[in-house]
Amino acid sequence: MTKQYIESEFSKALANFQKMQSDPALAAQIEAAVSLCVDALRKGRKIMFAGNGGSAADAQHWAGELVSRFYYDRPGLPGIALTTDTSILTAIGNDYGYDYVFARQVEALAQDGDVLVAISTSGRSKNILSALDACEKKGVKVIGFTGGQGGEMAHRCEICFRVPSDETPRIQEGHEFIGHLLCALIESAMFPR
């Protein structure tokens, strides 16, 4: 039983990656997202990240890859995970409600020309959608990561990566892969070896 489950999960993951690989638009989307981020960074702007649960872990992971390093040593890049400051998160949650934990931070920290990487497997997370509202007001560009059809986020982002699955683990695996590609390509564009 366990072996069958493992084999089934491998098969599903591989099938999902094959769908992603055969999507003719994905490479162009990745290139566009890298260009958006590199343009912001070259203008002295920053990249912010937000998500819930496993997507919060991705937000922290990718911000860490930019600030520290990915493939090689180079100067740090300004990446901020809006998921990490418990005092800010609990203050906003208590004073305004959980739907505003990211929007309020965008209001406080963002500048025109910054980029928000917004991660929601469903594309319907209320606190992410509220953050998109704040981004529109502040002139912040949005790169979305969703699954399936993209939910409400699909048409509210400059670029929206929609992993072709309705299963949360498959969506998150796709997000992680694309996120790593972005980090690697941003690093090499900003600091070519």
Rank of each mutant, 00 (worst) to 15 (best):
I88Q: 11
G93E: 00
I80H: 06
F102I: 06
P75R: 10
N16M: 13
A63P: 04
G44M: 06
A33N: 04
L89P: 00
Q60L: 04
V106G: 04
V34C: 13
D23Q: 01
L109S: 01
F49A: 04
Y100G: 05
R74F: 05
G97E: 08
M48P: 15
Y5P: 06
E7C: 01
Q18R: 07
S8V: 04
S55N: 05
S8M: 14
P24D: 11
S55P: 02
D99P: 00
A81H: 09
K46I: 09
I6N: 04
S35F: 00
L14E: 13
A108G: 05
Q29G: 07
G76Y: 05
S35M: 13
I80P: 01
W62V: 15
D73I: 15
A57W: 07
N16R: 11
V117R: 11
Y96C: 09
G44N: 09
A63T: 09
Y71L: 15
A25Q: 09
A25E: 14
G44D: 08
R69D: 01
S68R: 10
N52M: 05
M48K: 11
K43E: 14
A63I: 04
S87W: 02
Q4R: 14
N94K: 08
L82I: 00
D85C: 06
M20Y: 02
G44K: 02
A81C: 10
A81K: 02
K43Q: 13
